[in-house]
Simulated scan of single mutants.
Amino acid sequence: MSSVQATGSSGSDMPTQYEMVDDKRKRRMISNRESARRSRMRKQQRVDDLLNEVVQLQKENAEILQRVEVMTQAYNQVELENNVWRARMMELQDRLQSLNNVLYVAEEVSGLAMDIPEIPDPLMKPWQLPCPSQPIMASATMFNF
């Protein structure tokens, strides 16, 4: 028994109230499905964008870590060279002190006045350069970032 016959209508092709409600329900279901599909697509696009951002950030992080490693190696090399120069400076200061001591003894023994310069102590005045006539050369491209 059809819905037309159940309502007692005369069999005309006019849509019944039930058919109109059913059509609205079908349109709403189709609309909801389409909305859900769009929502899933937006969500998937957001996930894809976030994954691309993660990959990009990991790449940048790896590059930064590599630069840090290179800079650390350069720093260690410079520190090693500085230690060598400090040791040489201390050796030369000791030799100069020994020579000055010999001059003091020679001055005492001979009675002649000798001009014995005082040995500067770089640790007492670290802000003063031991050789002020030699400028320190530097450039902005020393450290490649």
Rank of each mutant, 00 (worst) to 15 (best):
Q66G: 08
A74G: 08
V70H: 13
A87H: 08
W85M: 06
Q44I: 01
K43R: 07
E53R: 04
Q66T: 10
E63T: 04
L51M: 12
L57W: 03
R42E: 07
R42M: 04
E53F: 00
K43P: 00
Q45H: 01
Q58V: 06
L65G: 05
V78F: 04
R86W: 07
Q73C: 11
V55D: 14
L57V: 03
Q45V: 00
D49W: 00
V47G: 03
K59S: 15
Q77S: 14
A62I: 09
A74R: 12
R88H: 01
Q58S: 12
L65W: 01
V78C: 05
E81F: 01
E79C: 09
Q56R: 11
V78L: 10
L65K: 13
R88F: 00
M71L: 15
V68Y: 06
K43G: 01
E81Y: 02
T72D: 13
E81M: 07
L50M: 08
Q44Y: 00
V78M: 09
N83I: 02
Q44G: 00
L65I: 03
Q73W: 07
V54Y: 05
L51A: 05
N52M: 04
L57A: 04
R86N: 15
A87F: 05
I64D: 04
Q73V: 11
Q56Y: 08
R42S: 05
R46H: 08
V47F: 08
N82P: 01
Q45R: 02
M71G: 04
M89V: 05
A74Q: 15
V55T: 14
K59F: 15
Q77T: 13
Q44K: 02
M89I: 06
Y75G: 04
V70Y: 10
V84P: 00
E63R: 06
L57F: 03
L80D: 04
Q66P: 01
I64N: 09
Q56T: 10
V68Q: 14
V47E: 11
E60N: 11
N52P: 01
D48W: 00
R42I: 01
Q58L: 12
W85L: 12
I64R: 11
M89P: 02
